[in-house]
Structures are given as C-alpha cells and as structure tokens.
C-alpha cells in the first residue's frame, strides 16, 4: 500500500484538493496546504505553474500566471514540500505539464520528489502511449504516476486502468478544468466498466465546484477532486485565503462521505 492508496481506505470517500503552487506565493501555498489537511482533505494536489497549461480553463490559467509572476520554480516547490512534510503526512501530488519536468530532467525530478515527500504526479499532456520514457527514467523512486480516463476513453479505459498506479483520475466531462453547473453521468458508466476489470480507486475531477455536486460525484466513485473552485477563492482572497479555503474544504468534507 502506498500513502496514496491508503487515502482511499478510510470510512469516507476521498476528498482531493487542488491549488497552484506559488499562487500568490509559496508562503501562502504552505499555509493553505496545512489548512486543507486540517479541514479534512485526504490528498492535496499541487499544480506546478506552466506558461501554457492547455488542459486548464481560465481560472487555473490565471493562477499559473500569478504563480509564475511571483517567481515560482520547481526547486522552490520542492522546498515548500519539505516544509509541509514537517507538519503533515497527507499524501501530496504534483500536477504538472511535461515540459517543465523534461527540462528539469525526469531522473532528477523523480528523485527530488521522493526526497522531499511527494507521493505521485499527474501529467495531463502525457497520455498512456507516451508514458514509457517517464517510467523508465523515474528510476527507483516510488513516485506513482497517476493516469487519467475521460468520457472519450471508453475503448481505452480498461488498458489504462490495468497499468494505472495509485488511483485513476476520472475526468468528468469534455473540455478543460473549470467550474460547471452540470456534469453528465457518462463518466460514472465508464467507472463502473473499469471496476469490473480492476479494483482501483477512481476519483472524479474537472468541473466539480460545489459541495452538492461533490456529493453526487462521490456517490458514483471513490472520491472527488476540486480545483478551480478552490483556486477561485485564492484569486479573490490572495494571501488571506486561509480561512475561506479552510471553510470551503470543510464544507466539501461534510458533503463527501
């Protein structure tokens, strides 16, 4: 068992909270991660800001711009994670586009992740067919590579699930990240199909923005991922986001049982 899969063995569905590292600065990110852990998040996903995040909607794009403007670097995020690890054991994931990792060096990146206490990575522009280089170069580090399935994955979902690590990130609907009013049920059907072939935790993300929605999505999966709705609060409150983010995570926690 890894720290990630452990997060899915509690007596409630998993709540995964996302924020962009360094938005608006690393100090705030550190406080927010601790607040998320304290208010009941089961995993925290830290976005490494990228100049051109093609899978993100406007809310997270803007967060990436703020984080880059504040001078956030990958090494800065490693230091942040080291600090966070002094305070909490919550499983931590990096969400990053491939280019910053590639430029940093996959070996070095994986090694540093392991050293400072990152449990897994999500790389949205690295689909199943392109994982080989990352897998062969991550070395002996125990960094788990989280795979994604989407409503268009039907014919591919079983193969992706068979080789998946940690949990399956199930994208709720077509399009980029953001807040959505309605989320279809297609992803629930795909999850049900996947579960017939492999018992792997499945968490739903993209568009999940309110506690009621989170509750519905949790009902058809093993957990929910909330990103843009949290980032929107950070955009509004900046360095003073701790209380508002904490309260929102607590509300999500109450809904995701």
């Amino acid at each position: 068992m890894s720290r990630i899969t452990d997060a899915f063995t509690k007596d409630h569905k998993a709540l995964i909270a996302f924020l962009t590292g360094g938005d608006p600065d690393l100090e705030t990110t550190e406080k927010l991660i601790c607040a998320m852990a304290r208010e009941g998040a089961d995993l925290v996903e830290i976005g490494i800001p990228f100049s051109d995040p093609i899978a993100e909607g406007p809310i997270i794009q803007a967060a990436d711009e703020r984080a880059l403007a504040s001078g956030t670097t990958i090494d800065g995020l490693f230091s942040l994670v080291k600090n966070v690890r002094q305070k909490t054991d919550i499983p931590l994931l990096f969400m990053t586009y491939l280019n910053p990792v590639y430029k940093y060096g996959i070996e070095g990146f994986a090694e540093q992740c392991a050293l400072c206490g990152i449990d897994g990575v999500i790389i949205p522009d690295m689909p199943y067919e392109e994982r080989a280089e990352f897998l062969s170069r991550r070395g002996a580090s125990k960094i788990e590579l989280i795979s994604m399935i989407t409503p268009t994955s039907r014919a591919r979902a079983e193969r992706i699930a068979a080789d998946a690590e940690g949990f399956l990130y199930c994208v709720s609907s077509l399009g980029v990240t953001g807040v959505r009013q309605d989320i279809g049920t297609e992803i629930g059907e795909i999850i049900a199909e996947v579960k017939k072939t492999r018992d792997i935790p499945c968490a739903i993300g993209f568009g999940v923005s309110a506690p009621e929605q989170a509750e519905k999505m949790a009902a058809i999966s093993d957990g929910v991922i909330v990103g843009s709705a949290i980032v929107r609060i950070i955009a509004e409150h900046g360095r003073n986001s701790e209380e508002a983010v904490g309260a929102f995570v607590a509300a999500l926690r109450a809904a995701v049982r």
Binding site: P151, T152, S153, R156, V171, G175
Partner: peptide, 12 residues
C-alpha cells in the same frame, strides 16, 4: 514527434 496531448483528445 509523438502525441503529448490530454487523454480526452486521444480518441479524436
């Protein structure tokens, strides 16, 4: 080369 794109686009 290759195809480094989100999973959603792979089918397309």
């Amino acid at each position: 080369g290759g195809r480094f794109i989100p999973e959603t686009l792979m089918t397309a």
